[in-house]
Amino acid sequence: MKQIPNILTLSNLFCGALAIIFILHAPEYIAEFNGTEYTVTNPEPIYWASALVVLAGIIDFFDGFVARLLKVSSAMGRELDSLADVVTFGVVPGMIMFRLLRSAYLQTPDVFDVSYFNLAPALLVPCFAAYRLAVFNLDTRQSEHFIGVPTPAVGFLVASFPLIMLYNPYNLAHLLENVWVLYAIIAVLCYLMVSSHPMISLKFKNFSVKDNWPRFLLVLLTVVSIPVLKYAAVPFVFIVYVGLSLVVPPKASHG
């Protein structure tokens, strides 16, 4: 019984590794527009990677829940969880951003002058995620809230990008085709992960509206935004989450 949470954690890692395979094997083909040839990436395998990140996030929630339920929480399980998270919510988002940057540069006039140095900033995402997870394991203040944005939130946000590119809700896809927008997203996400800002956790100690109204508001806006905004609901909820945390920071806990 005590290995059940660890098996769930390894399932999270399995999903992350499989997502990487989908990203690496996204087929490319040559298309000609107005007499000019372009290399185009088929988005389908990448949005399968997005689905795997979401599945891994669900598993990531339940491994801790099951460990507490079975009373088998351990230091080893905590370390294993972080090792899995750095792949699924660090490396996978970094690779998605790498592919998005590459696709964005393919649409620029100086496409043939682009090198891997132009795309390398995407790899800062896994680096900052790893640093954030190491700090999380050592920081005893994060039992009831987070310090900095948690890596699963970053993973969900970036995983929504291929789906936004594919379905283009509210004509947002063009933003993700701009290299400077992508660079800005990378910079903001890296900063938020290692920032010292207290962030809301969805751990409810009680169901008092007075104590939990930011959490209830976040849940309500999430539920309402999904049918209205479709896949754009993910960045909307992320922005609301960060904004609420900054405006109404959770109280510090030393438990």
Rank of each mutant, 00 (worst) to 15 (best):
Val66Gln: 03
Ala134Asn: 01
Leu83Ala: 03
Tyr231Asn: 11
Asn118Thr: 08
Phe156Gly: 02
Leu220Met: 13
Ala56Pro: 06
Phe117Thr: 04
Leu202Arg: 10
Met95Phe: 09
Lys230Met: 13
Val66His: 08
Leu106Tyr: 06
Ala252Glu: 14
Ile58Tyr: 07
Gly243Leu: 14
Asp60Pro: 01
Ser82Arg: 10
Ile46Glu: 06
Thr151Asn: 09
Pro214Cys: 10
Phe65Arg: 04
Ile226Met: 05
Leu83Gly: 05
Ile23Trp: 10
Leu8Val: 05
Arg132Pro: 00
Asn118Glu: 08
Val179Tyr: 13
His174Ile: 15
Gln107Tyr: 13
Arg78His: 05
Val149His: 03
Gly90Thr: 00
Gly90Trp: 01
Ala31Glu: 09
Lys205Arg: 13
Leu157Ala: 02
Pro109Glu: 13
Pro227Val: 08
Val247Arg: 15
Ala51Phe: 10
His145Leu: 13
Lys2Gln: 09
Ala31Arg: 12
Phe236Thr: 07
Val53Phe: 05
Gly94Tyr: 00
Pro235Trp: 01
Pro43Arg: 08
Val53Glu: 05
Leu229Pro: 03
Asn6Val: 11
Ala56Ile: 00
Pro198His: 10
Leu52Gly: 03
Leu138Asn: 13
Leu69Lys: 15
Arg215Cys: 10
Leu80Ile: 08
Glu32Cys: 00
Leu166Gly: 04
Ser73Val: 09
Leu69Gln: 09
Met95Gly: 09
Cys127Pro: 02
Leu101Trp: 00
Val149Gly: 09
Asp63Trp: 01
Leu18Trp: 12
Leu221Pro: 07
Ile239Gly: 13
Cys127Ser: 06
Leu163His: 02
His25Asp: 14
Val240Ala: 08
Val92His: 06
Thr88Phe: 07
Ser225Gly: 09
His197Gly: 11
Ala173Ser: 11
Cys15Asn: 04
Thr41Val: 12
Ala233Tyr: 12
Phe238Lys: 10
Pro27Arg: 00
Ser160Asn: 01
Ala19Lys: 06
Asp110Phe: 15
Val86Leu: 09
Lys210Asp: 14
Ile59Ala: 06
Gly16Ser: 02
Ile59Ser: 12
Leu172Ser: 01
Pro121Trp: 04
Ile200Gly: 11
Phe14Ala: 08
Val66Met: 11
Asp113Ile: 10
Phe22Ala: 03
Ile239Cys: 14
Glu37Ala: 01
Cys127Asp: 07
Thr222Gln: 03
Phe204Arg: 04
Val54Thr: 01
Lys210Ala: 12
Asp81Trp: 00
Thr41Arg: 12
Leu18Arg: 03
Glu177Phe: 08
Glu79Arg: 09
Leu217Phe: 13
Ile23Gly: 02
Gly255Arg: 15
Ala159Asp: 03
Gly148Phe: 11
Gly243Trp: 15
Glu28Asn: 07
Lys71Trp: 06
Leu8Asp: 12
Leu176Asn: 07
Leu244Ile: 10
Val111Trp: 11
Pro121Gly: 06
Phe161Trp: 04
Phe33Ser: 09
Glu37Ser: 12
Ile21Val: 15
Asn34Asp: 15
Leu106Arg: 15
Pro93Val: 04
Leu176Asp: 10
Pro150Ser: 15
Ile58Thr: 12
Thr140Lys: 15
Tyr191Gly: 00
Asn206Lys: 06
Ser196Met: 10
Leu166Cys: 04
